[in-house]
Simulated assay, not measured.
Amino acid sequence: MRIAIVEDDDKAANQLKKCIQHYATKHQLTIDILVFNDGVQITSAYPDNLDIIYFDVQMPVMDGMTAAKKIRQHDPQVLIVFLTNYVQYAIDGYEVQAADFLLKPVTEFSFSAHFDKLRARIGNHDRFVTVKHGDEIDKIILSDLYYIESAGHYLNYHTKDKVYKTIGSLKNASKDLADAHFFRCNYGYLVNLALVTSVSSNTVHVGPFDLQISRSRKKDFMAALANYLGTAEL
């Protein structure tokens, strides 16, 4: 696992690095840690094969949110976590699909629970579902699946490249994908929470798609999204 820390405060960077190393030792993980002093450093020489980036939100030269937006343009898979003293930045994190937010100062206790969630998400990167139509079977990687749409007795799987149509029910799809962080925003749509970019009023923006959130499901949907992003306690 390869992790980057982007933090202008050496003391804070070293504390986070210590938490990561202690977790890795306890769970027998091999982890490579890279440290950058500001957003310019990591965006100008972006490392290969990063799994997680920890961004301090407030930094001189280039802040963490600006750097995260630049990185997200060409790396949709890396998990982004923001380090901040201010909980209001959690809302801005929707735009870059932030995986979590850690309030400073980071402690080993809070970090352990946080990193357990990240490891589960990394494990889901290669998960897939199979969709059968006619005599063909297609394999759909979950990280490419924006949402599933109910259309009568059929389901439409909307991905980055195409739409796959198959016989099925959204109820069964919801059960199958519950542990992969898919949640219904209304009667007809099952949304990949990992690909939500923002929510405005009664609309959830999932990649290039704008989907309606029903009034009856909005409270539960927003709770599921907040829980997924790790902001329920904020």
Rank of each mutant, 00 (worst) to 15 (best):
Q28S: 14
V199A: 06
G93M: 14
M62Q: 07
V35G: 00
H22T: 10
I5M: 05
N172R: 11
S198M: 15
R217Q: 11
L16T: 02
K218D: 03
D100H: 11
F115E: 01
M62P: 02
T166N: 10
P208T: 02
K165M: 15
D56H: 02
Y154H: 15
I71G: 00
V199N: 06
I80A: 04
T203R: 10
S150N: 12
K11M: 09
D144W: 03
Q97N: 10
G168R: 05
G207C: 02
V96T: 03
R119D: 06
R217N: 04
K70M: 07
I20N: 00
K175P: 11
S143L: 07
I53K: 00
E149P: 02
P105D: 12
V35H: 01
D210N: 08
L193A: 15
I53S: 02
K104D: 05
R119K: 12
Y189K: 04
Y94E: 03
L103N: 13
D220T: 11
Y94S: 03
G188H: 04
N85S: 13
G230E: 06
L190V: 09
D126F: 15
L29E: 07
P208N: 02
D144V: 13
T84R: 00
M222G: 05
A4S: 08
L83P: 03
I33P: 01
A226Q: 12
I31R: 06
K175R: 12
D144H: 08
